[in-house]
């Protein structure tokens, strides 16, 4: 790839960058960009990638115990998709000048953040449904606008991810639907699961925008398209009719249609809990990172072997 554009005149670069944003054009890897833009993107894209990778764990937990072969296959495919999404995103981040090894290191040493939703555990099968319906549903709301993010590689990775994500939400919904049509024990399992996942899913959109320092700048840079509160409202509006179809009660007594606003009102969220989990004191924070680190360290000898083999072959070729 071409070298960075440090030689470019700062003012000309900044002017061109502003023009790109104003015209809703894409910024590509070889374009001049403010250092803050580059850093923000690296942080956001890598966090997103880490979330996909860590997200493989709570669901991977149920692959060996899936209660039907069809569900087993679907779950394997979903978790595999998540690995793929992580890979697309790490690739996009790399175009900004950071190595995958560096990002991985940040993750396994606990320096990097990832979506705190994955710090919750999956004690029941119904959680596979809730994760698909609520967590992936919230992720889709967040992600669709990102398909128009100003940075080209990120936007394009998001298009690919969004296409695959809709299968994820649908399969989660269907797991819950099947449970709600089943035995009393299955219905109880579904309701209990939704009771646990509902609020954390709503908090995936982040704190109210007044409390979110990065939002304004991200919106100015055409990375973030809608406010946290807007996205959260949109999500709740979608959820309520879906919950009715499922026959599941959302664990929020304050949900009510507000004719004046044209939206559903919903109750206050416990942001203290959110910050606890974000700060590393959630139910599974320690385990998630530790297991990722173990997998990575256990695999070092394999990666080294492959590298050594490749080096030896290329030495042979050069010598011949």
């Amino acid at each position: 790839m071409a070298e960075s554009t440090e030689t470019m005149d700062y003012e000309a670069g900044a002017a061109r960058f502003a023009e790109l944003l104003a015209n809703e054009h894409r910024v590509e890897p070889t374009d001049w960009m403010p250092e803050g833009y580059r850093k923000t993107l690296i942080r956001q894209i890598s966090q997103h990638a880490h979330s996909e990778i860590i997200g493989m764990q709570p669901e991977g937990n149920w692959i060996t115990r899936a209660p039907s072969l069809k569900r087993k296959a679907i779950l394997m495919a979903k978790v595999q998709d998540e690995a793929g999404h992580g890979l697309y995103l790490y690739s996009a981040a790399q175009t900004l000048g950071i190595e995958r090894e560096t990002m991985f290191d940040q993750l396994i040493t606990g320096k990097a953040k990832y979506s705190s939703i994955f710090n919750y555990t999956t004690p029941t099968w119904a959680d596979m449904g809730s994760i698909g319906w609520l967590v992936d549903g919230a992720a889709i709301c967040n992600q669709v606008p990102l398909c128009r993010a100003s940075y080209g590689p990120y936007g394009r990775a998001m298009v690919r991810i969004c296409k695959e994500e809709s299968f994820h939400q649908r399969q989660g919904f269907e797991i819950l639907l099947q449970l709600m049509r089943g035995t009393d024990a299955q219905r109880a399992m579904a309701q209990e699961s939704v009771n646990r996942w509902y609020a954390p899913a709503l908090m995936m959109f982040g704190p109210p925008d007044d409390d979110s320092p990065n939002s304004k700048q991200s919106m100015a840079w055409n990375i973030k398209r809608f406010s946290n509160d807007d996205l959260r409202q949109r999500f709740v509006d979608m959820l309520v009719p879906q919950a009715e179809i499922l026959g599941i009660t959302l664990p929020d007594p304050d949900i009510a249609w507000n004719e004046g606003r044209g939206h559903y009102d919903f109750g206050e969220l416990d942001w203290a809990e959110f910050h606890e989990v974000l700060a590393g004191r959630g139910p599974a924070n320690a385990i998630r990172v530790a297991r990722r680190r173990t997998a990575h360290e256990d695999g070092a000898w394999v990666r080294e072997a492959a590298r050594a083999y490749a080096d030896a072959r290329s030495d042979e070729r050069m010598a011949s």
Binding site: M1, E3, S4, E99, R100, E101, R303, E304, R307, A308
Partner: peptide, 16 residues
């Protein structure tokens, strides 16, 4: 900006 094709450690795999 680092060249994406460079790999640092003994075990890192290059970018394609």
């Amino acid at each position: 900006m680092t060249s994406p094709g460079d790999s640092g450690g003994r075990e890192t795999w290059p970018l394609w």
